[in-house]
């Protein structure tokens, strides 16, 4: 059985990111390609940050999800070029992030978040350039006073 690539993409849409489970690995933009090589399904995955500890878990989750749907022979290929950018986050993913309390990234190289993901205030300040995962920074809203995560825009 060799399901079509579109079907595989649909399945991968349901694999959550282990650290931000409201979005899928596809929403995060790290699945770059899905293709059959003979009887082997090759999935190209791009790491967000080179040392991100979730990368290995993500590969395992992808393999498990595809195994569960009957794909036997899977190869995960780590593809570092072109490097991952937050511009690859899907629109659907961005909306889900706000709902979850994480401010989505501005275009790569951009400055601060557009608004507080909780109260939508524009009056926000940076606490730290780094945050709870390699891909995020810590910010705070001066109106509702809640701290929140913001994607580093790379």
């Amino acid at each position: 059985m060799k399901p079509a690539a579109e079907k595989i993409w649909d399945w991968l849409e349901q694999v959550p990111d282990p650290e931000i489970p409201v979005i899928s690995v596809v929403d995060l933009g790290i699945v770059r390609d899905v293709a059959w090589d003979g009887d082997t399904l090759e999935v190209a995955v791009t790491p967000t940050y080179s040392g991100c500890p979730a990368t290995r878990v993500i590969s395992m989750d992808i393999e498990t999800a595809l195994h569960d749907r009957g794909v036997q022979d899977i190869r995960i290929r780590t593809q570092i070029s072109p490097p991952w950018t937050t511009d690859w986050l899907s629109e659907k993913g961005r909306a889900k992030l706000i709902e979850y309390g994480i401010a989505p990234p501005q275009p790569a190289g951009g400055g601060g978040p557009e608004a507080c993901p909780r109260c939508d205030s524009r009056d926000v300040e940076r606490i730290s350039q780094f945050g709870s995962t390699p891909c995020k920074a810590q910010w705070r809203c001066r109106d509702c006073l809640e701290p929140f995560d913001y994607f580093k825009c790379i």
Binding site: P47, Y49, G51, S128, F130, P134
Partner: peptide, 18 residues
Amino acid sequence: EEDIALANTALDLIGQTQ
């Protein structure tokens, strides 16, 4: 915050090492 920043920097560097 500095602890987290340093740990994240270390993580990037170890990733690049790989």
